[in-house]
Design a protein around this nucleic acid. Structure first.
Lengths: 229, 229
DNA sequence: TCAAAAGTGTTAACCATACACCCATGC
DNA sequence: GCATGGGTGTATGGTTAACACTTTTGA
């Protein structure tokens, strides 16, 4: 079996679920389809994997080509391969989820003819293919993962306030968190570096700025210690 | 891009990491390769996905064909697609992990020419392709998942003693657990049904038998309650 | 001086951990 | 009667969760 040369094989694509945080809104990046099937509908950015191309490289290439995004946090999500998911023929897609600092890429236009836009996850248009289902899996993964791994920082700017950090967790977890307990908890983890700076140009008391301390997290991982928020 | 008919595409396979529990030993099922490349080496059971075939169905079919296993617990693990992982050409594999009651399948021979055998995960032969790496990912997933989801029961017989349950967790987590705390914890979850039966033919006090209560777990999930061991 | 958000402690309930002995059974 | 594993409770420390007011700043 291992050496058999099967003539017909499923096609292979990658699709990306890209999340961004707009104030307190979790958003996802979609592209408008320029061609059938599902012409005019919104879909996840993605496309075919070529021979000799690594899967993650394919995902990054498609993101760059279709949305202009580059150097994003990317993690494999799941592989979807139901025979009927693409009406053109059996196509297996390796789905990825990405987290970006939305401010860096706010209204960036697509580089090819299609439109790209950020939609709040709470108010999505109908999606092409099985992309609605893929997005749901991505949301569940994000929700589950953000509490145990510091991936949420990928959504924030380099420097942030504790309130911004809390809003991010609330947006992802879809529930309010207690301010005092949240601050106690995140500060006790020793993963935030307090900066000698505060917010500027706000019409109220300026908040302290913090930065995620990657080195401290690496040390924590080496010692095999978990964290949880 | 979406409609482009690319001529060359990576091949698509599935591979399965099948775990079984032998007493207090976690074991994995391997098959001996009958053909080059890596002829004579041990490898994960797997093979090509055919057009129109669901990925999970392909994994089940390969397991059945190569090892005789049927009706096993199967879950998608990760998709590996580095261009150099198969010397015959770019091949992307969707890896699955499976849990089986080893006693049911103890010395089952492979149905085609190859040999199949159970190896303790603590003492493995060198593996073909990148299968060693895939196995490591599977072990990490099993370790992480078993504490939050009742998948470990797939490794045990329908009826089991609390000591057998504890041995299973110890084998997977690779650390000893305290007997009294373990019993308190698992019984407090209300996921075990105490049976009106005890062990037979043992040279010491016979232990109470329990059964995993799937209905209770389903109710717990509906109410959105987590468990942790 | 007002509006807006920043910042801060205590208490009570719960949960995790550490730990050692007697019991039932078969040989 | 002895060897083997089965079965059981308590005390301590740490963690989570609930909860409200004062401070700072700019307009």
């Amino acid at each position: 079996m291992a050496l058999r040369e099967t003539r017909a094989a499923p096609r292979l694509t990658v699709d990306c679920v890209v999340f961004g945080l707009d104030d307190a809104d979790l958003r996802v990046l979609l592209v408008e389809r320029a061609n059938p099937p599902f012409r005019g509908m919104w879909a996840l950015p993605g496309g075919y994997v070529t021979v000799g191309e690594d899967l993650e490289a394919a995902a990054r290439r498609e993101l760059r080509e279709e949305t202009g995004l580059d150097r994003v946090f990317l993690e494999q999500l799941y592989t979807f391969g139901a025979p009927g998911r693409d009406p053109r023929g059996h196509t297996v897609t390796v789905a990825w989820f990405a987290l970006v600092k939305l401010a860096d890429h706010a209204v960036r236009a697509a580089t090819d003819a299609r439109d790209a836009a950020w939609f709040p996850v709470s108010d999505l248009p109908p999606l092409a293919f099985d992309h609605g289902g893929i997005l749901e899996v991505a949301l569940a993964r994000l929700k589950g993962k953000v509490r145990y791994q510091p991936i949420g920082f990928e959504l924030l700017e380099e420097r942030f306030t504790l309130t911004q950090l809390q809003r991010m967790y609330e947006a992802i977890l879809e529930r309010p968190l207690d301010k005092r307990n949240f601050r106690k908890k995140v500060l006790s983890l020793d993963l935030l570096e307090e900066l000698p700076e505060v917010q500027r140009d706000v019409a109220h008391r300026a908040a302290r700025l913090y930065r995620f301390d990657r080195a401290a997290y690496a040390r924590m991982q080496e010692r095999g210690i978990d964290f949880e928020i």
